[in-house]
Every structure is written in C-alpha cells, then in structure tokens.
Design a protein around this nucleic acid. Structure first.
Lengths: 194, 194
DNA sequence: CCTTTCCTGGAATGGTCATTCCAAGGTAGC
DNA sequence: GCTACCTTGGAATGACCATTCCAGGAAAGG
C-alpha cells in the first residue's frame, strides 16, 4: 500500500507559499500553482483541498515557519531595546533585499483581500504574537526606556510600525528611509540625554 | 448633439471607488460595478476605459478627494502635536466606525495587489504627501517636542504608523487599541516631564 | 510474480471573466 | 417635424477560471 506521497508535501507547500506571498491569492490561478510546483491538479486537490484551503495552509506555513520564529527570538532575546532594533533591522533587510525583496509580509498582504475565518484567525494570531513579543522585549529594557512608559501601548505602537514597514516595503520603499523611521521611533523611547 | 452624459461621471466614479475600496481590485468583477452603478457595460467602457483604467481612476479619486484633503488640513493646522493627534484620531474614527469601517485605506490596500505604473505613482504620491504633511505639522510643534528630534525621521516613523493603523483596521482592529498605540507613539515625542 | 490499492497526470466541464458589438433611443440643430 | 449623431443597453464572444473525473501506473503484501 503505497500511501506515501511521491513528493514532499511541505516542500511543495513552500513553493505555493512563495507564489501566494508574491502574487496574492486572488490574482494567482491554479494553473500557476501547477506550473510552479510541477504537480498535477488532482494531486494538489487531493493533498491540500481547493484553492481557499491551499491559500490558508500556505499562509499558516508562512506564519508558523517564518514570522513566529522571528517573534520567538525577539521575545527570548533579553537585551531590551537592542533586541527590538535588531528585530526591525532584520525585518527591513528581509523586506528590501534578497530573494523576497518587494514581497512585503504575506500576513500584512492578506489584510487587503476578503478572508475566510481560518485566514482571519491567522491574522489575529500574527498580530497578537508580534505584539506579545515586542511587549516581552520591552519588559527587559529596564532603564533603557524613559520612565513612566506604558509598555502595552508602546508594544502596540511598535506593532503598528512593523505593519507599516511591511506594507510600504511592498511598494519598493527605500530601505534607508525605513531604517530612519524605525530608528526615530525607537530613539523616542529612550530617556532624554542630559 | 447630445454630448452630455445621461449620468454624473464623478458620482458614478465615487460608487466605483467605494466598491474597489471595500472589495479590492482583483476580486471585483465588472458585473458588480454594473450592478452598483446602474450603468451598462458599454457606458462604463466608453467613459472610463477598461477595468485597470477604471481602478486607477477610482484610486486617483480616493487619493485626491479623500486622503489629500486630510493631509492638507494636517499640514495647514499650526498647533503642532495636537494637530497630529487630531489627525490620527480622525483616521481611527474613519477606519473603525461609520460607513467605511473595516474598509481600511484604499491606497494601503492597493499595496497588496500587482499594480501598473499609474497605480504605483499614486501610491508614491500618497506616501509622499502624508509624510510631508506630518513633517510640516511637526515643524510647528516647537518645544512640544523633546529636544534634538530628527523631524524627517520622525515624520517617516509616523507615516509608517499611519499605514499600520490603516492595515490593521481592515482586520477589524479594536479602535481603543489603535488609539493607545498612537498615543504612546506621540507621547514618546514629548519632552520628559520632571 | 500477481493482485490490490491508492496516487498520479491529463483531459473534460460548467461557470465566470473582461471586453466588444450592434440595434434602438433620445437629443440638438435645421 | 425631420435628420443626423452620439449615447445607451443588452446580447454575444472568446479566454480563462476552479474543480472533477477517469484511465494508467507504481509499490507493497501474499
């Protein structure tokens, strides 16, 4: 009983993820998925279900395998503000140079198109985990931060900043400009130098 | 020679703008545009061109008639930080309550889909004008700001923040949370109270 | 080595897409 | 009131969409 697949489902899903990430869900046809993966239509449908499910699975892979590892590293990094700065540096680097430049963040992109409950859950989870990671990083910042700062609200503002970076990077925003904006936001959190 | 149209082209374009704004370009069919406007296909094509041109015209209307008036008001308001706070309050109010709640910003949404040169120009213009307006407002803030602040970089960071608000509001983000995030970002710009 | 079982590939299908075309209708000038 | 012209509405068109189906094939158990 060869109930083993003749291909690696996760490797294929990664190619699908790349396709939906770059092109979006609505404008990407199954024919393109077939061409990109080399699989046949029937194998795709049998393995992953229809297009909506396929997109949801690809987005899930993106969130779990790409976003959340970065969020976990940020939350575990105990350095405080330098950790936050490193996170944003890595984000801008990933968004503006290399293989995925100009693709933006797949989760941020997904906000623009009509989404089913699965996708909506993933977007809420993405936002919640980023916010929690930033909050955790800020908690370790101690006196790197100006006194009296509301950590919850600050984490929320940095989360929104990250979404802004993601969106604008898709329009080919200048990496240096993004870095300046992020640096300004982080510098404002520091105590006033005397 | 009745070269007058039997309808108001701008009123129709506003309905089209609403449709594309809410539903996105790729997922909206011409049939829906016909149903929403009451016009016939031939009138639409004769007046506005094909779907791409129609979308570009609708986005142009959005930028010129909705975004830029707010940007101009922000740039002309001489109050400094309160002007910026009022701008963000109005933004969140518009994004989370009333007729357009959950629609996000049409220009921010447009980042997610493949765009022709016209659309790309409009997105650059949108970002540039918002950034310039924030910069102008910050210039009038005087000692409401902590000393030594880089106004260019701060304007960029607030621009990114606004895009973040726009994106997240499309996923039904809580208005109060957005307000807290914005407030934290603005508070960080103020001089430290002693 | 043969049978059984499930996966695979390509063709087939009904629906929807953007776009075009043509006859009908209404208005301005004469 | 008549003619000429432009706009309109609805039907027609060809391409592409997501999805399904069926025959062929490869691998494991006996």
């Amino acid at each position: 009983m060869p109930d083993v697949k003749h291909f690696d489902p996760d490797a294929v899903l990664e190619q699908v993820e790349h396709l939906f990430w770059r092109r979006g869900a609505a404008t990407t046809g199954i024919a393109e998925v077939v061409a990109a993966t080399g699989l046949s239509r029937s194998s795709l449908y049998a393995t992953y279900g229809g297009k909506q499910e396929l997109y949801a699975k690809a987005l899930r892979r993106y969130v779990e395998r790409r976003s959340e590892p970065m969020f976990r590293a940020l939350a575990a990094d105990g350095r405080g503000l330098p950790a936050v700065a490193a996170f944003f540096d890595a984000l801008i680097e990933a968004r503006c140079t290399g293989e995925y430049a100009g693709w933006g963040c797949m989760a941020a992109n997904a906000h623009a198109e009509p989404a089913g409950p699965q996708v909506r859950d993933l977007l809420g989870r993405h936002h919640g985990m980023l916010r929690a990671a930033l909050r955790a990083a800020l908690e370790t910042a101690g006196d790197q931060l100006r006194p009296g700062l509301d950590l919850d609200a600050t984490a929320e503002s940095l989360t929104l900043l990250a979404y802004g970076v993601n969106v604008r990077s898709r329009a080919g925003a200048d990496a240096a400009a993004l870095r300046r904006g992020v640096t300004a936001a982080l510098d404002a959190l520091r105590p006033t130098a005397l």
